[in-house]
C-alpha cells in the first residue's frame, strides 16, 4: 500500500471508520513505514490539541442585549435587563408598599367586620364583592350618562395650551412606566436568585438592589408627576405648599 493512500485516510483510521480488511492493510503498512507513523502521530496530536483548546470568552453584553430586546418586543413576558442602564427604574418599594398596604387593609377590614358582626370570612368577602359590583354598575351608568354630554377638551375648560396638556400626560405616563419597569426589575431579580440562597437572603438581596436605584429614580419620578400635575391644574403654588407640608 502506498504512503500517499495511507496518509489520505489517517483521519478515518483514527475514527475507526475503515472496513476491517482495509484497516488491517493500513496497520500492516504503518508497522513498516516510519514516515507514515510520524504522520499518524502528527494527526493524533492535532486532533487532541483541537479537542482541548479553551472556550472563547463570551461577551457580557450578549445576555444584556438579548434581555433588552426581548423586553422591547411585543410578546410576553415582560423582563428587563439587569444593568445600570435601567437605573431609571423608580422605587419599587413605593409601588410594592402601596399594593401590600391595600391588600393588608382589605384583609384587616374583612377580619374586623367578620368579628364585629359574627360573620364568616367568606360571607364578608361575598358581601364586599357584591358591593363592589354594585358600585361598578352604578359607575358604568354614570359614565354612560356623562358620555352623552358634549365633551369639551380639557384645554378649553382650563384655558391650557393643548401642547402643554399633551406634555403633561406624557410626563405622567413616563413616571408610571418607570414604576412598571421597577416592578418588572424586581421580578427579574427574584427570578435570578438561586433557590438555595434562602428566602430571607433572597429578599434582602432584591431589596438592596432596588434600594440602590431608589435614590436616583424616585426624585425623577416625583418630579415628572409633579410637573404633569402642575401643568394640568395650573396651581403651582398650592402644590408647593402641599409638598412642603409632606
Amino acid at each position: 500500500m502506498h504512503c500517499e493512500i495511507v496518509q489520505n485516510i489517517l483521519e478515518e483510521y483514527l475514527e475507526d471508520e475503515l472496513d476491517e480488511n482495509f484497516r488491517r492493510e493500513v496497520e500492516s503498512h504503518l508497522q513498516s513505514c516510519s514516515y507514515c507513523q510520524r504522520e499518524l502521530v502528527m494527526t493524533e496530536r492535532i486532533a487532541n490539541f483541537i479537542s482541548v483548546i479553551p472556550d472563547p470568552q463570551v461577551p457580557e453584553e450578549i445576555y444584556e442585549n438579548v434581555i433588552t430586546q426581548v423586553c422591547a418586543s411585543q410578546k410576553q413576558p415582560t423582563i428587563i435587563p439587569l444593568n445600570k442602564g435601567v437605573a431609571l427604574a423608580a422605587s419599587c418599594q413605593w409601588h410594592r408598599g402601596l399594593f401590600s398596604g391595600i391588600t393588608d387593609a382589605l384583609r384587616g377590614g374583612i377580619r374586623h367586620i367578620g368579628d364585629r358582626f359574627a360573620m364568616k370570612k367568606w360571607q364578608v368577602a361575598a358581601a364586599m364583592a357584591s358591593l363592589l359590583l354594585l358600585f361598578a354598575i352604578l359607575g358604568g351608568y354614570y359614565i354612560r350618562q356623562k358620555a352623552t354630554v358634549p365633551k369639551q377638551s380639557y384645554a378649553t375648560e382650563t384655558d391650557i395650551d393643548p401642547q402643554q396638556v399633551a406634555m403633561a400626560v406624557e410626563d405622567i405616563k413616563f413616571a408610571l412606566s418607570i414604576v412598571q419597569a421597577a416592578t418588572r426589575k424586581t421580578e427579574l431579580i427574584l427570578a435570578q436568585l438561586p433557590y438555595e440562597m434562602g428566602i430571607d437572603t433572597a429578599t434582602q438581596k432584591a431589596f438592596d438592589t432596588v434600594r440602590e436605584v431608589d435614590a436616583k429614580a424616585s426624585k425623577s419620578v416625583l418630579d415628572a408627576i409633579r410637573k404633569g400635575l402642575v401643568i394640568l391644574t395650573k396651581s403651582r403654588s398650592i402644590l408647593e405648599i402641599k409638598t412642603n407640608k409632606s
Binding site: 472556550d55 463570551v58 450578549i62 445576555y63 438579548v66 434581555i67 426581548v70 410576553q76 413576558p77 423582563i79 427579574l188 427570578a191 435570578q192
Partner: peptide
C-alpha cells in the same frame, strides 16, 4: 415562562 428562557440563555450562550 420567562424563567425558562433566562435559564436557556444562560445555559447555551457559551455554546
Amino acid at each position: 415562562m420567562h424563567e425558562q428562557f433566562i435559564a436557556i440563555l444562560k445555559q447555551y450562550q457559551r455554546q
